[in-house]
Amino acid sequence: MKKLTLLIIGLILTSSFIFAAKNITLKGSDTLLILGQKWAEIYMKKNPGTVIQVTGGGSGVGIAALINGTTDIAQASRPMKDKEKENVLEKRGVGANEIPVALDGITVYVNEKNPVGKLTFAQLKDIFQAKITNWKQVGGKDSRIILYGRENSSGTHVFFKEHVLNNEDYAVSVQPLPGTAAIVNAVAQDEKGIGYGGVAYAKGVKEILIAKDEKSGYYPPTMENIISGKYPISRYLFWYTAGTPKGEVKKLIDWILSPEGQKLVEEAGYFPLPKEKSK
């Protein structure tokens, strides 16, 4: 029994010398991919001993990796579900730690040649449920509407479904694409197309102005409109860790929430956190 006790103490002491990992993995949201890559690039330049690997796949993929212990940080464009938090607790023995890292306005993109420039919330819902199927029904040309969306594992897919479609199903005609960049690319080449995604990706396409209802004004997804609540489809973007972050992961999180890290949020095209949420 004494030998066993000594073995246990020895193992604990040995492991304490090899703690403090310098490799950090980020996995998950495609919306956050370009921001995560930008943060990683600058942080690694400032901290040459640290290696940060950033991969996408969607919020669901990142959260599954956090549950399985194959990533240090899950990037997510939606809040974690209770069931997912329960799985983190069961598998990792700690709670999921939620860190809002940026603000995003879900932007609706159409082709630059499309004359439609504004939609109400209700029209948007009807379009993605195929109740409105022709652009002329919302003031555009007489042509079919082609719908582009994200896969089930995408946090943006889930957020759009919950907040725009009122948790009802998408039309079966929505073509799921593997990332926001793919949606922007598809819409940029398709005059009949419409898609949605993070504000930072809206390049080479037209941003649609959105109104809460017919009586309220139409607004673009700007910082002011999101904070004032005039733009109706905004969200926090999150990082999740299993348990309280420690060591190099904590240093990285402190840095991205600092003014320097939040400045990069703006440069990447997203919106920095309100002051009370940043450091």
Binding site: I8, I12, S15, I18, F19, A20, A21, G69, R92, G93, A242, G243, K246, G247
Partner: peptide
């Protein structure tokens, strides 16, 4: 149980 989640080697984790 005692685990080593902060260990550097994936084996110890």
């Amino acid at each position: 149980e005692i685990k080593f989640p902060m260990a550097k080697t994936s084996f110890l984790k």
